[in-house]
Design a protein around this nucleic acid. Structure first.
Length: 423
RNA sequence: CGGGGUAUAGUGUAACGGUAGCACGAGUCGUUUGGGACGAUUUAGUUAGGGUUCAAAUCCCUAUACCCCGACCA
């Protein structure tokens, strides 16, 4: 992609704003950086457009999550956002779920906008599950969710419309669910590691509802987070506020010494048991011909929230530092000056990188000073910055610098692709 | 949903009840080209509706929007 063509404008903040007397302290860092760097645009409170750079990151996060879900046996589907009221009255949540968006169609017929999909996936499963031989299985989707939060906040960390991966698993027995659930904990940690927030993310005990003692939240430590978690000083088990209120001692080692931390919930997993199977009469016949309710689990990851969380965990004073796996581009190629040879060489490198299928953003703009290009590159945060200038060409070289390192080094033109392909 | 705050140009901000100004951005021209460079020039604004007043960006009322704190968050 040529930067001169990119649908994006970075925003150089006015001086007063840089000095921090306003927005810097009222918004989360991720909200500020993502907006300034041109990744997202706010339409209204809690509703955002993903611009080309941001959308690329979203797609990359989706792919990381998707790959891990498929590896764990999940089959991808896409369920509707628009859902019949009846399914929600069946579970009672039409009236009890405060965040449910209700819309009216013609003839005053009422619908729900899906905040989650148990009400769709459970009756769906009923059409396919008859025998114990049909179990277990799991399906997932990556889709827009709607929740009428009373208060949206912190940029894309808490919105009314957001992208979520939700997987639902269906089992013949509690043991089978338990086994799958434990496996998903490992899968989730692998995902957060690949997203570049593995180190900051804690498996956190949360209340489990009727069917299990605990559910688990994946909480990423950050000052921008709105949750408080408590990490046991002795055994490092993390628990959320709810659990801490019910049970002042560590459920794992009984210590009462905790560290309180702010965190954002990037994922959570629940053992649903028969909570949704019963109202929808989702059952199977066992080996003896007996009807048994299906046992369910559900597993969510906020895709768009994860994007914000990644920025919270990966930035410096100059801008975003994207982890390689989800960066909008692998390489930011920057040509400096109007020298013909510089132009020709950068153009050639641009084409070769594309031919090698290396995602490259090429700053081909002639009317921008070097300083401005550098400042923008740091703000956008692409992992590799490659510079072509008269200075580097005099040594028959290019300069390459990683966003998360301070040292740049010169390499030969012909070694560039070799180096990038190794990464 | 309770409480608080704010609303002036694309962005960030000034203006005692009395001429709406500045910076950044954007456009044009020129000079620049290794850290958001410089000069010239152009562009564009008082959230909406009511009220008080000779006179309202400024005071009052209503609405709307956004932000913050809390509550809420399968």
């Amino acid at each position: 992609m040529k930067q001169s063509q990119l649908f994006c404008k970075t925003n150089k903040p006015a001086l007063s704003r840089v000095e921090g007397n306003k927005s810097a302290e009222t918004e989360s860092v991720s909200a500020d950086l993502l907006a300034r760097a041109g990744f997202v645009d706010q339409l209204m409170a809690g509703v955002y457009t993903f611009l080309p750079l941001g959308f690329r990151v979203v797609k990359n996060i989706e792919n990381v999550v998707r790959k891990n879900m498929v590896d764990a046996g999940g089959q991808e589907i896409l369920m509707p956002v628009l859902q019949p009221k009846e399914n929600w009255t069946t579970t009672g949540r039409w009236n009890t779920l405060d965040v449910l968006f209700k819309v009216k169609g013609s003839g005053d017929k009422e619908y729900a906008l899906g905040p989650t999909h148990e009400e769709v996936v459970s009756p769906l499963a009923k059409k396919f599950v008859f025998s114990y031989k049909d179990l277990p299985f799991s399906v997932f989707q990556i889709q827009t969710k709607f929740r009428d939060e009373l208060r949206a906040k912190s940029g894309i960390l808490r919105t009314r419309e957001f992208l979520m991966k939700d997987l639902y698993s269906f089992h013949a027995s509690q043991e089978d669910l338990d086994k799958y659930y434990d496996k998903m904990i490992k899968v989730y940690f692998n995902i957060f590691k690949e997203l570049g927030i593995g180190k900051e993310t804690y498996l956190t005990l949360a209340s489990g509802g009727t069917f299990s003692r605990y559910s688990h939240e994946f909480q990423m430590l950050t000052e921008a987070g709105e949750d408080l978690i408590y990490i046991c000083n002795k055994c490092k088990t993390a628990i959320n506020k709810e659990i801490k209120a019910e049970n002042p001692a560590c459920p794992n080692c009984s210590s009462d010494s905790f560290q309180e931390k702010k965190a954002v919930e990037v994922g959570n997993i629940f053992k649903l048991g028969t909570k949704y199977a019963l109202p929808f009469d989702l059952k199977y016949k066992d080996q003896y011909g007996q009807d048994k309710p299906v046992i369910m689990g559900c597993y969510g990851i906020g895709i768009s929230r994860a994007m914000g969380a990644v920025v919270e965990a990966n930035h410096d004073e100059k801008g975003i530092v994207w982890p390689k796996e989800i960066a909008p581009f692998a390489v930011h190629l920057i040509g400096l000056g109007e020298d013909k040879k510089v132009k020709a060489t950068s153009q050639k490198i641009y084409q070769e990188l594309q031919k090698e299928n290396i995602q490259v953003l090429y700053d081909d703009r002639q009317d921008k000073s070097a300083g401005e290009k550098f400042a923008e590159a740091d703000l956008i945060g692409i992992p590799y910055r490659v510079i072509v200038s008269e200075k580097t060409l005099a040594k028959n070289s290019l300069e390459i610098k990683e966003r998360n390192k301070s040292a740049a080094k010169l390499i030969k033109v012909k070694d560039l692709i070799k180096l990038l392909k190794l990464k």
